[in-house]
Write a protein that binds this DNA or RNA. Structure first.
Lengths: 188, 188
DNA sequence: GGCTTTCAGGTGACGTTGTCAACTCTGTAG
DNA sequence: CTACAGAGTTGACAACGTCACCTGAAAGCC
């Protein structure tokens, strides 16, 4: 049996999926509430039953994406037998992969100003990251190293996306920058 | 005497200034061609005499901002007696200052995909930067170092803007990250 | 069971925006 | 002096976000 709340939850998810799909395919301008509703099989006004406005819908998508990254980081962090530095590298590589596979979503995740919902989800993804760094460089240095690593990879991603970081111009790319930064960490 | 081409050029500049002002004050959503025209003292259709469409106007603003940064970097690079590493630091600090004083403009400068006009102006700003680095680490390493430095500072700026890089969470800030990265360079 | 409430969803309407076509007007070239 | 080019205006249109109002059915209560 399908209760009403179940149906509503399904619609909400359909709206999120439709909006994320439109974002991936056509960028932010392609995400119109009318088209989102149409793809989800509802009318143009229906989204307002689940989200305050368009911005609220986009925020929910961003938070969802951060939570997916957090799950991925958590799985990596709990992986037994994997060298800690490789875990750090893999977490950053996960960011890079998301940015390349779904550039518009990645940009949405970093859209200022980030609301509390997004900040909390992002913090959740950074928990395992800082924990791994603590094992390598100690608690006191973990945050400082983390900020440098995260900034460096995030910046390389942004410059690559805008076309400023090309191998032709800089003789390197985002992957190498990631490796260079991770190389600053002690091994094991 | 005021020729017609002079008057047209003045209108074009007025449109650019008006749009840049609206961008600084109210973000990208505040930049409407109607309001731009009104501020420039012309009608809503006038911008189409100087720019192909809204995007073209925004692109021109981004290119103009990159050129201003390029001028600043060029002045720094030609500064006699200043230690080369300080020049590099000052150039990066100039980026950081722009990002803090005019965050919406900074974001526009890095908006993907960057057209040829923007990429060329950006490259112009990076010329003095790479030249200074060549003096410090040699031609072969200058580009790789430059990419890491630029990525790191750009990423820190982005995370600071979105509220993700706070001293509360990371025990550091963009200024310290900048210093840390510049500290990787040999002195003098 | 019947009644009332609640709430997902639909529809009409409005203001705003980007954009185009048609028009006016005025320096400028021939 | 005439024709032209081009800056500027205005009317119009479609698309969009959003709101107010309406509908219908599930859910809770007696």
């Amino acid at each position: 049996m399908i209760t009403r709340t179940e149906s509503a939850a399904a619609t909400r998810r359909a709206l999120l999926d439709a909006a994320a799909g439109l974002l991936d395919e056509g960028g932010p301008e392609a995400v119109t509430l009318r088209e989102v509703g149409a793809r989800a099989g509802v009318s143009r006004g229906a989204p307002y039953r689940h989200f305050a406005d368009k911005d609220d819908l986009l925020t929910a998508i961003a938070a969802q994406a951060w939570n997916a990254l957090a799950d991925q980081a958590g799985t990596l962090g709990a992986h037994p037998g994997m060298p800690t530095r490789d875990k750090v590298r893999a977490m950053l590589a996960g960011m890079l992969a998301t940015a390349r596979e779904r550039p518009h979503l990645y940009r949405l995740m970093h859209r200022p100003p980030a609301g509390p919902e997004v900040l909390q989800a992002a913090a959740r993804s950074q928990g395992p990251f800082v924990a791994a760094l603590s094992d390598l460089v100690g608690d006191t240095q973990a945050h400082r190293f983390g900020a440098v690593l995260l900034s460096g990879v995030h910046g390389a991603i942004g410059m690559e996306a805008s076309g400023q970081l090309t191998r032709d111009k800089w003789k390197t790319d985002a992957d190498e920058i990631l490796d260079t930064l991770v190389g600053l960490l002690p091994a094991s």
